[in-house]
């Protein structure tokens, strides 16, 4: 029983990180109808940036979230502006191909620089923990990562709801032509959207670097989990992606108790198929194929 509770705690904490990753992926999909297969590699780029900042100047990985997010925002903005905007109105197959290529480029670039070895960033406190009850331990690093991830996710939702820029992003996602008639610069809005998603992924990556080991091949898993969480939550629905991320964290943790490691991905897919069969509109009640964004 305590083993199950321990897995549940881990799952929820890991789910917070998945939520932070998935929410940006879902946003990009909902606003631009782009399924960004390179999203997971942005998480890894964030993790390695945090790793470098720690190695060179001894920066704490959680403090590194700020510069890492800023760097990924800028990079994401430029990638959208210079690359994806060129094909954003093309059939989805084209954008899949483009982001697939981008993913290969980034993952192999990371392997070139860092090899495929597992890395981690050690801090004085992340491995500390406290007992929630007998046999159930909460590691400080993971708790911190989950709390920061949830706060960032909620901050993104607030930006979408309350700011002029957020409103422009939502409007452009709903009707690009009408938004342009209002004077909204769709290309700029798309680039901002992609930059925001990349920044969230990068921040998540910095947190990932602090709570465990990572190597470039993890990119695929993060993309897959983002995809599943986005569909589970209902496409473009940010609260939905949040819930989807938490569910996946739990599924992964529970599955890990019962199944050998790689089968956990299969379980994630099984959950996806099951949800689509029962509730095609997603857990949070929005069709995954309707390209509307809600917060």
């Amino acid at each position: 029983m305590s083993q199950f509770l321990q897995a549940t705690v881990y799952g929820l904490l890991q789910g917070g990180l998945f939520a932070l990753i998935a929410v940006g992926f879902s946003l990009v999909w909902g606003v631009m109808n782009v399924i960004n297969l390179a999203h997971g590699s942005f998480v890894l780029v964030g993790a390695y940036l945090a790793f470098e900042l720690n190695r060179r100047i001894g920066l704490d990985p959680f403090a590194a979230m700020v510069p890492v997010a800023a760097a990924l925002f800028a990079a994401g903005y430029l990638v959208q502006r210079g690359l994806i905007n060129l094909v954003v109105k093309a059939p989805i197959f084209i954008t899949l191909l483009l982001t697939f290529g981008l993913n290969l480029l980034l993952v192999n670039g990371l392997i070139l620089i860092y090899s495929g070895d597992y890395r981690s960033v050690t801090t004085g406190y992340a491995a500390d923990g406290f007992a929630l009850m007998s046999g159930v331990r909460v590691p400080v690093g993971r708790l911190l990562a989950a709390v920061v991830a949830l706060l960032l996710t909620l901050a993104l939702v607030a930006v979408m709801r309350r700011t002029r820029t957020g409103l422009a992003i939502l409007a452009t996602g709903m009707d690009r032509g009408a938004a342009r008639l209002m004077g909204i610069r769709a290309r700029h809005v798309y680039a901002l959207t992609f930059g925001l998603a990349a920044a969230m992924a990068g921040a998540a990556g910095a947190a990932v670097s602090a709570v465990g080991t990572f190597n470039p091949a993890d990119a695929g898993r993060f993309t897959l989990f983002s995809f599943v969480a986005a569909v589970l939550g209902g496409l473009g629905n940010m609260y939905g992606a949040l819930i989807g991320g938490m569910v996946l964290g739990l599924v992964e943790a529970w599955g890990g108790q019962l199944l050998p490691g790689t089968l956990v991905n299969a379980v994630a897919f099984a959950v996806l198929v099951a949800v689509l069969a029962v509730r095609p509109e997603g857990i949070a009640g929005r069709a995954f194929y309707s390209s509307r964004v809600e917060v």
């Binding site: 409103l167 939502l170 409007a171 009707d175 009408a178 938004a179 209002m182």
Partner: peptide, 17 residues
Amino acid sequence: RLFPGLTVRDNLRLGGW
């Protein structure tokens, strides 16, 4: 071509963009 998922207020605000 209203923004269907947004409130009337947000639609109007967007008109005044």
